[in-house]
Amino acid sequence: MKKIALILFLLISFSTFAQKYFTKTGNTQFKASVEAFEPVEATNNSTTAIININSGEIASLLFVKAFNFRVALMQEHFNENYMDSSTFPKATFKGSISDFNFSNISSTEKKLLLKGILTVRGVEKEIETLATFSKKEDKLLMVTSFGVKPEDFNIKIPKIVSSKIAGTINISLAYEFIKKK
């Protein structure tokens, strides 16, 4: 009886002891370029993301203002006209990875289903995509991409520029998680 109690206790304490991996400098990129026009793309190198390796839950946050464009004027338009980054400074993602098992991830890439809610400009959208996981030394790497539409988040593109901005915006992520102490 004592043994069973001890095993149970160990199991419970194992499952409640959440091990987390995180990054503060994740790379989030979006591309909305149309061929033959000026590239509409930007990179955010300060995305925060946390992953609970016991449950496979993931949460991430980025500041819209921290997206860097090659053209400064485009960055200004992005923040002021399209994203309203002073009213909605953050974009977040909360979700989970199906069948996430930390010990099964090795240096060879493994594709797993990532599902969750992306919130941009206060509007929520469900996202489902395949994400590639691998381990490099003591880091956990996650790479994925998915497409969204400006109208999903009530972003109105003026007619005059609509031909220069892609209908589907491709968002790609590359995060290097390290163990949270």
Binding site: K24, N45, S46, T48, I50, L61, F63, A66, P89
Partner: peptide
């Protein structure tokens, strides 16, 4: 200052 990161509970500068 880019904002307050409420996931990690820290202020973020870039």
């Amino acid at each position: 200052i880019i904002g307050y990161d409420d996931l990690l509970e820290e202020l973020k500068l870039d």
